[in-house]
Structures are given as C-alpha cells and as structure tokens.
C-alpha cells in the first residue's frame, strides 16, 4: 500500500512538478528543505493528494516540519485514510 502511494506520488512529482518524467526520487530524499518542491507546487501536491487519496492536507501543514520526504508524506496519508 505505502509502496503504491509512494510510486504514485513519485510519478506525479517527477512529471508534473519537476517536468522530468521517469526521474526517480528517494523515499527519504528531502523535498522541501532542499528546494526540490517550491511553495507553489506544494499546494498543487496537496490538491493532488486530496484528489487521489481523499486525504485533506491543511494549508498550515504544508511545511517541512510536517513532512519533508515521500516516506513522511505517505505515512501522513496512510494515517488519515
């Protein structure tokens, strides 16, 4: 399940945010503090998570102290599903 979530997230981020389809992202690679995802695309990512997994991420949760890697985001999604 969590692998499935991570795969979908990776595909979305690589294709839609990084514009590099097929690029791999490590499950513990830093997404926000490294600057890989900027604040604008973070909102897009939240909308994607809402559409795909039916999980609401609050505006105040979109920061590195809540999640900064695919693993952490996947865990957050799982805990709310």
């Amino acid at each position: 399940m969590s692998d499935e979530v991570i795969t979908q997230l990776t595909e979305y981020i690589a294709a839609e945010i990084l514009k590099q389809p097929g690029r791999g992202i490590g499950p513990d690679e830093s997404l926000l503090t490294s600057g890989l995802i900027d604040s604008f695309h973070l909102v897009d990512l939240a909308l994607f998570v809402e559409d795909h997994f039916g999980v609401h991420l609050d505006d105040a949760e979109l920061n590195a102290s809540v999640f900064d890697s695919l693993n952490q985001l996947a865990a957050l999604i799982r805990s709310r599903q």
Binding site: T33, G35, S39, V43
Partner: peptide
C-alpha cells in the same frame, strides 16, 4: 537562490504567511 533564501530567513514568519495567505490563496485560485 531567492526561494531558498526565503525558506531560511525569518522562517517562522514566512511559514505563517504561507499557511494563512499564500497556500489558501493559491489553493483557491488553483
């Protein structure tokens, strides 16, 4: 870069602004 600068300068203010201005606005427009 400037984006990284603002992720690391007066971070608690920028996070506040992101949570209560930028994110809601972007979400609404999106």
């Amino acid at each position: 870069n400037l984006t990284q600068f603002w992720n690391n300068w007066h971070m608690t203010l920028t996070q506040w602004m992101r949570a209560y201005v930028f994110n809601p606005l972007t979400r609404a427009l999106r």
